[in-house]
């Protein structure tokens, strides 16, 4: 096997549509972020693949020192202790027991919840709600461009996802950005040189 630096033929360092490290996902997000204030909790609601985690990680990038936790499968509570005044971002919050959720909501923390189900009922109090999902061709184009730039190796041409390919991806996958990234991962694995990507 002949070894060469990975993706050097595309002027990239890795496949841009592979899984980015959690610490870098916030910086790659193209989202309109709401303000996060103690006593005014926010829930980001949406089905899988629509950007709930991306919103939370973007909030983490905006608030250095913010605590991010994802409630694992089978668990019904968050594991860490949350100090007063902290910015706490709790993902998969639909798994948390209503009693624990209510006690968390009563704390003086700036709280954002990522959830697949609307938690208004379980919260027993008003929640600001942000519906994740829905993507315009312009926004998707920017998401994809940022991902390619993130993987850039050096100056010069890199692969580009042209507007017509962006439109076709939305036609095929709707607003499921994760499915779009999966499709592009496979396409980038096969690319031979920089240029416009055909979908």
């Amino acid at each position: 096997m002949i070894l060469a630096l990975p993706f050097a033929h595309l002027n990239l360092r890795w496949n841009p549509f592979g899984e980015p490290p959690r610490g870098e996902r916030g910086g790659l997000a193209v989202v309109d972020l709401p303000a996060l204030l103690p006593g005014d909790p926010l829930q980001v609601v949406g089905p899988p693949g629509r950007g709930k985690t991306t919103h939370l990680l973007a909030l983490a990038a905006r608030h250095p020192g913010a605590l991010y936790e994802c409630v694992p499968e089978g668990a019904d509570r968050h594991s860490g202790t949350v100090p007063d005044g902290a910015v706490f971002l709790l993902d998969d919050a639909q798994r948390v027991r209503p009693r624990i959720l209510r006690s968390l909501l009563a704390r003086p923390v700036a709280l954002a919840l990522g959830t697949q189900e609307d938690l208004l009922g379980a919260a027993g109090r008003p929640l600001r709600t942000l519906r994740a999902g829905g993507v315009t061709p312009e926004r998707l184009g920017e998401i994809l461009r940022r991902r390619v730039e993130w993987a850039r190796r050096g100056p010069g041409p890199v692969p580009r996802v042209p507007p017509e390919a962006v439109r076709r991806l939305i036609e095929r996958h709707g607003d499921d950005v994760r499915a779009i990234e999966g499709r592009l991962y496979d396409l980038f694995q096969e690319l031979k040189e920089p240029g416009d990507v055909q979908v």
Partner: peptide
Amino acid sequence: VSGSGTNK
């Protein structure tokens, strides 16, 4: 393995 939680 990619993702975590329900995205895993």
